[in-house]
C-alpha cells in the first residue's frame, strides 16, 4: 500500500506532504497503517461546522491497483485520523503552495 498525505490550510497555511510505501515500514507499523486507513475511510467526512483555521488533510491511498482519495478537516473523525497521523505526521515535509 502507498499512502500520500498532503496537509494545507490552517493558521500557518504551509503545505506539507509525505509519501509512504508500507513495504518500507516495519511489519507491525505497516499493519497498523493499513488497519488505520481502512478505519479512516469507513469514518467518512463528518460535520466540521464553524471551525476556523482548521487544516485540511488530503489522502491518496493505493492498494492492489485501486486508488482511493479522501479529504478531511483536521477536526473531523478525530479518533480515526489520530491513528493514521501518528504514523504519517512525523514524515511530513514542507512543499511550495500549489493553487491547483
Amino acid at each position: 500500500m502507498r499512502v500520500e498525505l498532503t496537509q494545507s490550510g490552517g493558521w500557518a497555511n504551509l503545505t506539507l506532504r509525505c509519501l509512504v510505501d508500507s513495504s518500507s515500514l516495519p511489519a507491525d507499523v505497516a499493519a497498523e497503517l493499513d488497519d488505520a486507513v481502512q478505519a479512516l475511510l469507513s469514518a467518512g467526512m463528518g460535520q466540521v461546522g464553524r471551525v476556523r483555521d482548521a487544516a485540511v488533510l488530503e489522502f491518496k491511498f493505493e492498494k492492489g491497483g485501486k486508488v482511493t482519495r479522501a479529504r478531511f478537516d483536521e477536526t473531523a473523525a478525530p479518533k480515526e485520523l489520530d491513528r493514521v497521523l501518528r504514523i504519517l505526521r512525523p514524515l511530513l515535509k514542507p512543499i511550495p503552495f500549489q493553487a491547483d
Partner: peptide, 12 residues
C-alpha cells in the same frame, strides 16, 4: 491538541 499538531484554530 492532537499529535504533533502545528496549528491553532477556533472551533466555534
Amino acid at each position: 491538541f492532537g499529535f504533533q499538531v502545528g496549528n491553532a484554530f477556533w472551533d466555534g
